[in-house]
Amino acid sequence: MQLRRTSLLAATFVALALASPAAPAAPAAPATGTPRAGGTAPGGWQQVGDDAKSGVSGLALTGRAVAGGGVEALVVHDNKKPGERRISRVTFHPSAPKATTVTPLVWDGAEPKDLEAIEAVPGTDGEFMALASRGLVYRLHVDGGTARVLDLAPLPAIPEGADFESFALGTSAHGRTVAVWADRGAGADRPATVFAAPFSFNEYGEAEFGSVRKAEFRAAYPKGDVRHVSDISLTKSGRIMVSSASDAGDDGPFASAVSEAGRVSLNDSGTRATLRLAARRSAPDRFDGRKIEAVECVPGANGTALLGTDDENLGGYLKSAPVCGG
Rank of each mutant, 00 (worst) to 15 (best):
F13Q: 07
V14Q: 15
L16W: 11
L16K: 02
P21V: 14
A23C: 02
A23K: 08
A25D: 15
A26S: 13
P30T: 10
G33Q: 06
P35D: 09
T40F: 04
A41T: 00
P42K: 08
G43M: 06
G44P: 08
Q46A: 07
V48G: 02
G49N: 01
D50E: 15
D50S: 15
G63W: 11
G68P: 04
G69Q: 10
V71Y: 01
V71C: 07
A73V: 14
N79R: 06
K80V: 14
G83S: 12
S88H: 03
R89L: 11
P94T: 09
W107M: 02
D108F: 05
G109A: 01
A110I: 00
D114V: 04
E116W: 07
E119P: 04
V121N: 06
T124H: 05
G126I: 10
F128W: 15
R134I: 11
V137N: 10
D143G: 10
G144H: 07
G144Y: 08
G145V: 11
L150N: 04
D151F: 03
D151E: 15
A153P: 00
E160A: 15
G161H: 08
G161N: 09
D163F: 03
L169T: 06
V178I: 15
W181E: 00
D183I: 01
G185D: 05
A186Q: 13
G187E: 06
V194E: 02
A196W: 02
A197G: 11
E203C: 00
E203K: 08
E208H: 03
F209K: 01
A215H: 04
Y221R: 12
K223S: 12
V229F: 03
T235L: 05
S237A: 13
R239N: 10
V242W: 07
S244K: 05
S244Q: 05
D247W: 10
D251Y: 03
G252S: 12
F254C: 06
V258D: 06
R263I: 06
R280Y: 07
R281T: 14
S282N: 12
F287P: 00
G289K: 03
R290M: 12
V295K: 09
V295I: 13
T304H: 04
T304Y: 01
L306T: 09
L307W: 04
G308N: 07
T309K: 09
D310V: 04
D310G: 02
L318N: 08
G325I: 02
